[in-house]
Amino acid sequence: MGIKNILRVSNLSVRLGKKIILENIDLNVKKGEVLGVVGISGVGKTTLLNSIIGYYPLLNGTVKYKSQAKKFVSVQDNLNNFKRLFGFSAQNPSFYPELTVMENLEYFASLYDVPKEIKEQNIKKVLKLVQLEDHSKVCAKNLSGGMKKRLDIACAIAHNPKILILDEPTSDMDPVLRERMWSLMEEINKNGTTIIVASHFLSEIEHTCDRIVFLRDKCAEFIGTPKEFRSLYSKIKEIYISTKDGKHDIVLKKIMSKPFLEIKHVSRKNGGILLHSRGNKKAVSDALSNIARREKNISNVEIRNPSLDVLFKVFVEK
């Protein structure tokens, strides 16, 4: 591969209060990659990110980062040095609403002891990157939701970190803003910053992330590329059927009467029904063609590859 690891998470277990949130997580983060952390709500995505940055005490295991001496050292033992390496954007924006965009950036950059000249250059660059150049003198509380998120990311990268950690960066955004945000992440990544991002939006993660980590039952159940994930669940097919009169009961009964189709999930979508099948692709195709021929009420039948979201749902429910 040629890409070297920048972070090593070994056998990580975290307990908050009396509850164990994460157990025996092993994970390597490669330099310059975008790593997606995926899982249902409450599975421990934020806990994992906070544990990586040394925010929570570890019950077990280690988190090591590659130091300037090219050696892996413990984050917990060298927290202050590690803090200079990463930037973090939490779910809720973390800056001073009473200060202007520029004041916030200057303040947070100064917390990292960045020399004045470099700091100024960084801020300029960051402002351009997050497209807030024209709003540098605007009070942060007066920014729009998307701008606030961008400012938060700007604050996280104002000291030019090597690793940017983003926790649900697009959670409250509309699709347009989400797209912009992912574009921003790609831009930041292009500059050589390693990104670890936790998100619910699998389809977006699929496009941006080099690798994904699926968390389930306190563990990292899958670590790999989206392609690897998809191939792992490639047997699943998405079937969409619509009828002329909008009544699907007879059609559904006929489909369900064929066990070889291995229908796992049925839902209504866009006036039709959506089914997930684990059956043989040819067998499914033949069976559906037969049904369509006999049932004149059927107006449309489609067999397609499911999105990552669908696969995620299947993955979660398996």
Binding site: Y55, K83, A90, S94, F108, L111, C155, A156
Partner: peptide, 14 residues
């Protein structure tokens, strides 16, 4: 309680 407290605490400033 400020929004910025989290960012302050993750900074290397003592």
């Amino acid at each position: 309680n400020s929004q910025a407290f989290f960012r302050n605490t993750i900074s290397p400033t003592s």
